[in-house]
Amino acid sequence: MPNNKEKDPDWKNDFPINQSEVTEVTRRQFAKFLCLVSGGLATGSAFVAAKAAFFPGKKVQGLHRVCSINELPVGGTRAFVLEGSSTPYVLIHLENGEFKAYEQKCTHLSCAVFYKPGSGKIECPCHNGWFDAMTGEVLQGPPPRPLPRLDVQVTGNDIFVTAAKEEA
């Protein structure tokens, strides 16, 4: 009997009738699949490089008033959103009197982060990630990057935020 499998079109081999043939993956097929994955990863890297080079993210423009000093007690926080943007930020009044503003999205999986009063740390409760409230650096857990921050300026009784200066 001639080997029908040789004559069958590819789609019949890809969707066989017998269940036992469904799970059969040859090492050749697996090697080709790995090449496909490799192509996908190279494409992903190309996308990241193109995005970084040609479409950089928008920077915060100008000064934005958040609240007055009286509205934010020591150890307190205030969530805010800048005009024309949906990115959530949090303003923190640290115990040493300083004000800090960070993006309220964990750099791991974008969960909301919270300041833990008295500890000097910002917590991401989703996967137990911790950030330094003074610098935004990662202290512990899965987050791969520091929290993006905004510079805070206190003018009179009002608190303003502006884009953070790039560190050289």
Binding site: C35, S38, G39, L41, A42, G44, S45, A46, V48, A49, K51, A52, A53, P56, T107, P144, R145, P146, E166
Partner: peptide
């Protein structure tokens, strides 16, 4: 390479993304 390039690009270290792509393409 993809993980490193992405994280550095998001951290504003754009210099890493392009060499990472070149490396990834060479491996492909």
């Amino acid at each position: 390479l993809l993980y490193t390039g992405l994280n550095n690009a998001l951290e504003h270290n754009k210099g890493i993304a392009f060499p990472a792509f070149i490396g990834s393409f060479t491996i492909l």
